[in-house]
Design a binder for these strands. Structure first.
Length: 260
DNA sequence: ATGACTCCCAGTGGGAGA
């Protein structure tokens, strides 16, 4: 079974890339971020033709998340964090059937960017991260098999940053953001990517500017966390750089989790 | 270097992203 997360930076623009990627890899569950589409405009028909059912939670212009499933049962769909009113569409969760194992609670999330420390957007990010942590704590209590994946907008360690000196204290790399990431691990979640040897200088995002992808200057900010109960089921986790090489790519690459 | 690129809604400029 394969699960994946991908910040597509506008599903309207990236639908051809997504359909091609789904056809190549046929993942069972896909979390999308930055769809930037109201639900009325979500391309259900094209995805259904590709074999995927979609749960969308979007808004105009900004943010927007979705969960795609291919032939797996899905229920208990939830949009945004309960008890944390938010104008911004950032979280979608569902329980999916996992053949051979118990059902998996899947949370797809587009974490706030945060702009810069000291700004209102950074304060919003901190509040959002606190609300997420407390909600996920409860979700884990009722769903031991849980996957939290998406665009976290946090580079957890210096090895997740192409130039840790230049980025020190900058957005995505502040101690406050990293402490929140550590808090999530402290709930009993594991960074699936780091369960395996990985190529050095592995990133999931490269700035559009300054030939950053060609120079491999990026950040690892897209993550798949799995609960401890699932650790033994994790067979592989990788970042697929191929879609970043296409014409008119998203600035993010998909991250893929393979379960036994 | 308050840059660079891309997307969006706007309406030939500006916000947001990271």
């Amino acid at each position: 079974m394969q699960l994946a997360t991908w910040n597509v930076n506008s599903l309207a623009v990236r639908l051809p890339h997504l359909l091609a990627w789904l056809a190549d890899h046929q993942p069972d569950v896909v979390a999308l971020q930055e769809t930037k589409l109201v639900d009325e405009k979500f391309p259900h028909a094209e995805l259904e033709a590709a074999g995927y059912a979609a749960q969308a939670f979007g808004q105009k212009t900004y943010n927007g998340v979705a969960l795609l499933t291919r032939g797996v049962g899905l229920g208990d769909v939830l949009r945004n964090i309960p008890g944390h009113p938010d104008e911004q569409a950032r979280v979608i969760a569902a329980t999916v059937a996992a053949p051979g194992n118990g059902p998996i609670r899947v949370i797809g999330a587009y974490f706030p960017n945060g702009q810069a420390p000291g700004t209102d957007k950074f304060a919003y990010k901190m509040q959002w991260l606190g609300a997420l942590r407390e909600w996920v704590r409860g979700e884990l209590a009722s769903h031991p098999r849980l996957v939290l994946m998406g665009d976290f907008n946090v580079a957890p360690e210096d090895r997740d940053v192409h130039d840790p000196v230049a980025w020190a204290g900058q957005i995505h790399c502040t101690p406050e953001e990293r402490a929140h990431f550590a808090d999530l691990l402290g709930l009993g979640l594991v960074d699936a990517f780091r369960l395996f040897d990985q190529p050095p200088r592995s990133w999931s995002w490269w700035d559009y500017r300054n030939l950053a992808f060609r120079k491999n200057q990026g950040l690892r900010i897209d993550h798949i966390l799995v609960s401890e109960a699932m650790r033994a089921d994790v067979e592989a986790c990788m970042i697929d750089k191929a879609p970043r090489r296409l014409e008119r790519p998203s600035d993010h690459a998909p991250v893929v989790l393979t379960l036994r």
